[in-house]
Simulated assay, not measured.
Amino acid sequence: MIGSTVPRRMLGRELRRLRETSGVSVSKACAVIQCSPQTMWRLEGGQGGVKLKTLYVEALCKLYEASDEDTAALLGLIEEAQRPGWWHSYGDCVPEHFDLYLGLEQSARRFTAWQTTFVPGLIQTPAYRRALEWTAFPGMPTSAVEQRVELIMKRQERLEDPTFSAAVLLSESVLGHEIGGPAVMADQIHQLIKVGQRRNVSIGVVPQTVGAHLGLQTYHFVLLEFPPRSSPESKTKWIEPPVVYVEGFTGALYLDQADKVDRYRSALVEIKRRALDEQCTRDLLAHKAKEYAV
């Protein structure tokens, strides 16, 4: 089960494609299902906050003169989009902007991250995550913190899927931030070494001695890439476009415009060129772990 994010986005893109192909205006489409242009924009954009109704989609497909096959495929996407993802059971510990990310992460086939400040959630230890949560929310009840730690551990089950791959590029500065104290950092670095030995995971560290490089300007980000998907109701196949996720202090950016994604891809090429290879990265990690263990 991948949750609502990807099928909702696919449904929105297909409805927009059908509308534009048929030459129907936004105002006319809005009139048919009696909604505002803002609601139509959110529907076609795959945004949350719009209740997906079978009658609406059937009416729009009829207006757009969609084929029976296309209509059946879109109705199938509604059913899939209405199934909750596993993370919805964690309630308030999932911020609204991060709900979208979790749906994308769970359906991605490749995860590529560049991080300059801390270890990405997919490879954090419980103690490391706990220290981050206490720093961000010092007054949070212990039970709520532990629920967030549990969420991170649940996300890491994604690494068990052999069809999923993760590439993590870290600035050496990540290893210098003593989050949770020396013992927590030593365990976290040993975790990096262990996870990096998986066949579907690669970890590379960019030494601080390389000087100026493009990764210092991009800030940290994640590139998510998706497998093609087909509809069981028809022969229709969809390609979910790659998404760049940039998390900020109070929200996040989701970029899927081709030109912007390409710029981040190019940045990853440059960052990886500056990173140590996997063996040299393991050697550096082992050295850092010994420093923290002293």
Rank of each mutant, 00 (worst) to 15 (best):
M1V: 06
I2G: 14
G3P: 03
T5Q: 06
M10P: 04
G12K: 06
R16C: 03
L18Y: 03
R19G: 02
R19H: 00
G23Y: 03
S25Q: 05
V26P: 07
K28A: 09
A31L: 12
V32T: 14
P37T: 08
M40K: 04
Q47V: 14
G48H: 09
L60N: 01
L60Y: 03
S67R: 09
E69V: 05
E69L: 07
L75S: 08
A81Y: 02
H88V: 00
H88T: 08
Y90S: 05
D92M: 15
P95M: 05
E96H: 06
L100N: 11
Y101E: 02
G103H: 00
R109G: 08
T116S: 15
T117L: 12
F118M: 11
P126G: 04
A127L: 08
L132F: 06
E133D: 05
T135P: 00
G139I: 10
P141T: 09
R148G: 03
E150C: 11
M153H: 05
Q156V: 09
F164Y: 12
V168W: 04
S173R: 11
V174R: 02
G176S: 11
H177P: 01
H177T: 11
G180Y: 03
M185W: 03
D187L: 07
D187N: 09
H190I: 07
Q191M: 07
I193M: 14
I193T: 10
K194I: 14
G196V: 10
R198N: 15
V201G: 01
G204K: 12
Q208P: 04
G215W: 01
H220S: 15
E225D: 12
P228M: 13
S231W: 02
S234H: 07
T236Y: 15
P242A: 09
V246R: 15
V246E: 15
G248K: 12
D262L: 10
E270K: 13
K272Q: 15
R273E: 15
L276T: 06
T281H: 03
H287C: 10
A293T: 09
V294C: 09
